[in-house]
Every structure is written in structure tokens, then in C-alpha cells.
Design a protein around this nucleic acid. Structure first.
Lengths: 366, 366
DNA sequence: CTGAAAGCGCTTACAG
DNA sequence: CTGAAAGCGCTTACAG
């Protein structure tokens, strides 16, 4: 537990200068400040309350996300649980809103009294992760991936299972498959789009940009995609929704329009928790365990903070693909429903007795 | 911003004793400790990092809850947002797991570096709220109600709308109505049970304990209730599920069993967010706005901490009742499905063309 | 169980 | 922009 005296010694400055660097006082050169902060981080300088070390860790987000989205909530739950085991509390920090002008991330985190951070940050803010890593502040990036080996990260690669999901649809006979994602770019969702493209390519099917939909991660967004797809001239017979809320919105809209899933259209969804079982028909989905992902990030950060782990790490966890009831062969003669609600190829609507394919556990990949 | 010197003066002890009281050092009498802590709380003593005051607030829970339950997640989101406006960070604190033996709540919160707490605590831990209030630590209790006027609380009373929901079912012709709740008692859910009983009484219907089901707040729990209800000899024609997950589990099970909602059974659910629109048919539900509830708690606590608000308060927010598609008149001849899946009164299953009652906005009560 | 006093860790005018 | 030094706020042996 080095004091500012030790930091001052190592950095070759006075304790007053160390104090100024840590507190972002005016009248300190950026060069000196950065040198001092780098020394402080590498020496493991810790925020203290009085003379006691604080045991808080930050959950840094940028405000583009909604904390109540099932993924964020599940990740939080996992992180809180695993950090609690090591005696750490979790502090929620909005790095975009609350960081002061001119403050380095190290200063911001120190001011918030945290000793390390879990960075839950979307793609457009990847630079933030790079900066924090270069400052040497203890961190784990959650759900993004970096090649640079000095950035610690934990994520889940859903690309292989996205390919698998697409190949399953293609094997069922689907040739026109739409792709629906939310409108906040992050690594996760890019993986899934890449999987979609790759599978199409593998089977000689063209990638058609007009079949890629981007909407806010809401029920309404998912419904819009379904309606648009159903009104297309050469309409897709399946949709891969890479967000749970979007998928549920799509299924809901299908019920309301009298479009049968999977007879009229097949839907593959995405599930961060166990909510694929909440909808009817049960969603065939690419799944990741967000609670586990959060827990892994928490465990890793604990190891970094206790000094148990020195080397940087890049962990990729597996997703899995689960076949349930929302997918089936494409219809022989696809119905199309115009935006005015008129069907262009009337089909009989016998009932809701949807045949249920047996639930097959996909690749609980290694 | 009083220092320990000022606290010592007011409490009539030395600064050493104040320090010991704040830190739970051995060798201090409980009497002295409590007196010192009371003075510290009433003087507004604040945790400091170095010489700077911390701006953290705790979200105290007890671990019986799951942070990823839609209600908890929504409440957190609201609290984080409103606290952020006042420059406060939110720290997640498990008061049961992390409080040390012999530590007062004030000491625990001080050690965690928080200046105030939002108490999200279930019924069996009501004493915790009383203790914290009596210690004088700045707090707002979320989603419980206290008569004692020195406990600050913000909650939502869903009893009136529970009565309304029941009366709506009764007006539709239902006479046997089951009630399903989760198995963690808290004020919210007790309100709903009381509303259920009151409405039955108002209409001369008997309260039958065997129609009250308690299950964990999971999809499986909700499914179990539906299955049990469907196999009862004199089976209920409607269920009031006072938890979203339970209601969704029930609807899902109905689809799987070929039980039509609302033709064969009416379902009234509960919604903390907007997820009644995620299921088909859209849930008729008693609704509360959990994000708003969390935001209100955050705003109030901010006012307490800035000294803007001195007097204790008890805020009750309104719920509302929304009629959607999952309710209708009872069937003329109720089908019954034995646990072996055999129907005892076969009915024709023409289709999924469920007539949709127009969506009526209920009592967005004052 | 409590206090007087030494002293740690930090911040902050003051000087240059 | 930086340092030497005063001093705040707290903790902790030591004494009783």
C-alpha cells in the first residue's frame, strides 16, 4: 500500500506534485501529471477513506445503454456476485456524463473511490478502453474484443453459432433470410452480422444489404422489422434477430398479423438469459450466458486487484445454439402481407396447433 | 462538513473515541458508540477520501432478490439516473452478506463510503429499515411502507387497482378466480393479495385459501400454477398473477397445453415496466412504473443529502390498470385438463383468431 | 473503556 | 509549473 511519498520518490517529484496529479489541480503540466499517474497505477496506489483502503470497483458504462436491458441487468448481477466474494462493492459510473473536463480516467476513477473498473462500453467508445489501459488503471473490458495485448477483456463470441444458426435455416430450405440488429454498434452484434454473411457466402447465397435491418432494441423495433419483411416483394422466409427484445417484438407482431411462426416465417432469436422460454413458440436462438459473462469479468478483476494475476488476458467465452419451436421449413408459397394488411396469397388458417420440433441442445461449444 | 473534532465536542468525548466509534474498534462501550454515531449522523458527518467528501449513495439489498429481475433492474435504472443529476454515484451493497459482525448500519455504510442509502428490502427485513432510521442515517426505503413517521419511504400502492382488476373479472362473469404470487413476502405483494380478498368480499364471493398459489418468480412457477388450476375439479376461470414472470410463465404453459387465453381462461398479470406488450395475447395487467419509482427514491434521497428536505416523508405513487387481450368472459362450460393431459370436456379449437378487446387505459390514478 | 499525544497521509497557501 | 513547509483530519500505540 504505497503512500504518495513513495510515488513521489519513484516519479522524482515532491509529494505536493503527486497530490496535484492525483487530484487534477490546476497548474501542473500534462507531462508531469501523466508520469506521476503512470507511476501511481503501476505501484498499485489505492484510493483511501481516511487511512483505510476502499474496496470498491466501478461498473463503467457510457449511457448509450439502458441498465434495465436484460443483458445489462444480467451482466451486472453476475459481476456483483463474483465481486462480492472478494469483498468488493460495485459502483455504477457513467464515464461520459460524470467525468470532469480535463480529468484523466485514472483521476475520475480515483475521485469515485474505485480501485478498478469493469468497462461495459460499446464500439464507438473503444478508444476509452485503450486510454484507460494505457494509463495502467486496473480494468476488464466486458463484451468487446481487442487485439492489443495490454487490454484485459472478457467477451462471448457468438459468430460461430451465428454461422451454425444460419446453416440450420439454409438446411431447412430457406434462401432469403433477413437480419435484424439494434442500432448501437458493438463487438457482439458485429460478430453476429459477420456470421450471417459468412454462412450466406459458404452456401453461395448473395448478401443483400436491403435485408439487414437496424432498429432500437425495443419491442416496437422488432415489430417494424417483421412488418417490413412481410410486405417485401421477394420476401424472406426467415429472420435472424440478434437481440432478444427485437425477436420478441417480431413474434408478437406475427401473432397480431395472423402470421404463423414457423409455418409462414421462421425466426431465430438471441438470448442473453433464459428468456427464449418466455415466448410462444419458444425461440430457436443463439444464446449466451450474460450472468456468467459478468461473473467472469468480476472474478478476473478481483484477481488483478489482489495481484494474483499480473499478465494481461483476453478471454472469449462460448455461446451455444438451441433449436426450439420458432423455426421450420419455409412455406411452399410464401404469403405476403402488404402494409395495408391485405394478404397477397391467402392461406388457410386452421389453428394454433403448431407442430413442435423436439428441443435439441445445440453446440454447448467447448 | 463537520470534522471528528466537532463531533467529539458535541458528544462530549475525545476525538480518539469518535474515531473508534466510527470504525468499530474494539474496546468501546456500545453506549458511547451509539451516542457518538447518533451525533455524527445528526451533524451530517460525511465519509471522506483524503480531505474530499465522497459523493456515493448505496443501493442496499439483502440478497433474497435477484438484481436482474425486471423490477429490480428498472428501479436501479431510475435511481441511477436521478442520482446522477445530483452528482451522486450508486454503490450496490448487500447488507446481509457484507456487513461485519457487530458493526452498526451506520458503520457499515461509512466503511462502504456512502453518504446515504436507498433501501430495497423485502418484508422479513423490515427491522433493518427501522434500525437504520433510528440510527439517523440518511435513507429512503423503496417499495415498503411504514406507519412510523421517521422512516422515509417511497412505494407504489397497487391495492386499489388490484381491487379494480378483480372487479373487472367479476363483471365479466368470473366467480372462481385464482391468485398467484411469488414466495418472497413484501409490502407490494401483500397489497395485491389484500385487493384480491377485498374485491371478493365486496361481491359476496368466498375467499378460498386453496386458490392462492405461492411460487418462485420464475417462468416455471407461473406454468405450475396454470397447470394446477387447469386440473382442479371446480376449476377457476381466471387467474390474477401479481408478478410479470409468473404471468408470462402461465401464458406460455397455456399455449403449450392448447388452453386458449382468454377463451378457456382469463389472465390478469402485473407489469413493472412495459413488458405486458411482450406476450401474446397482450396482458391485461395492473401496472406500476418501476423506473419512475426508482427515480423518485433517488430524487428524494438527493434532497435529504443536500439538506433541501428536512422533514421525513412517506410517498405513495399510483399504479394503473390496463385492459388488454388476455381477459374475457368465462367459458360456458369450463374445460378441465388433468395432469395427464386429458381433457375432461373437449371443446372445439377453431383457431387462433382471438377477438381483441380494444385497449382501454385504466385508472392512471391521480 | 477512555484520553493525551505522536504521527501518517494528504492538501494547500506561500515562495520562487 | 514545482517544492518546502504548515497544517487538517484522522488513527493508533501508550498510559491509566
Amino acid at each position: 500500500m504505497p503512500s504518495i511519498r513513495k510515488i513521489a520518490e519513484r516519479a522524482g517529484v515532491s509529494i505536493a506534485t503527486v497530490s496535484r496529479a492525483l487530484n487534477n489541480d490546476l497548474g501542473i503540466s500534462a507531462k508531469t501529471r501523466d508520469r506521476v499517474l503512470a507511476v501511481a497505477n503501476s505501484a498499485g496506489y489505492k484510493a483511501k477513506v481516511g487511512r483505510r483502503v476502499t474496496n470498491s470497483v466501478g461498473f463503467a458504462y457510457t449511457g448509450e445503454q439502458t441498465l434495465s436491458h436484460p443483458f445489462e441487468a444480467a451482466v451486472l448481477e453476475g459481476a456483483v456476485k463474483s465481486l462480492g466474494g472478494g469483498g468488493f462493492n460495485l459502483v455504477l459510473l457513467n464515464v461520459k456524463r460524470d467525468r470532469l473536463r480535463g480529468e484523466t480516467y485514472t483521476q475520475f476513477f480515483r475521485r469515485a473511490g474505485v480501485r478498478g473498473v469493469i468497462l461495459r462500453i460499446v464500439a464507438e467508445s473503444r478508444d476509452i478502453c485503450r486510454t484507460i489501459a494505457s494509463e495502467g488503471f486496473p480494468h476488464v473490458v466486458l463484451s468487446e474484443r481487442f487485439e492489443s495485448s495490454d487490454i484485459n477483456c472478457v467477451d462471448c463470441d457468438s459468430k460461430p453459432d451465428s454461422v451454425r444458426a444460419m446453416e440450420y435455416l439454409i438446411a431447412l430450405g430457406h434462401r432469403q433470410i433477413a437480419f435484424a440488429t439494434h442500432n448501437i454498434p458493438d463487438r457482439d452484434h458485429t460478430d453476429r452480422l459477420e456470421g450471417y454473411r459468412e454462412a450466406l457466402g459458404n452456401h453461395g447465397l448473395p448478401f443483400r444489404p436491403e435485408l439487414v435491418f437496424k432498429h432500437p432494441a425495443t419491442l416496437a423495433g422488432g415489430a417494424t422489422v417483421l412488418k417490413m419483411v412481410m410486405s417485401m416483394a421477394e420476401r424472406p422466409t426467415a429472420i435472424y434477430y440478434v437481440d432478444w427484445l427485437l425477436a420478441v417484438g417480431g413474434i408478437k407482431a406475427a401473432h397480431e398479423m395472423g402470421v404463423r411462426v414457423p409455418e409462414d416465417i421462421s425466426i431465430v432469436g438471441f438470448d442473453d438469459t433464459n428468456m427464449r422460454h418466455a415466448v410462444h413458440p419458444t425461440l430457436t436462438a443463439v444464446c449466451q450466458n450474460a450472468v456468467k459473462l459478468g461473473a467472469e469479468a468480476g472474478t478476473r478483476l478481483t484477481q488483478v486487484l489482489t495481484g494474483e494475476r499480473k499478465a494481461p488476458f483476453q478471454i472469449t467465452m462460448p455461446s451455444f445454439f438451441e433449436i426450439n419451436e420458432s423455426t421450420g421449413p419455409p412455406p411452399e408459397e410464401p404469403i405476403r402481407i402488404a402494409t395495408n394488411g391485405r394478404r397477397t396469397a391467402e392461406v388457410d388458417q386452421v389453428g394454433s396447433d403448431i407442430p413442435r420440433p423436439s428441443v435439441v441442445r445445440g453446440s454447448e461449444a467447448s
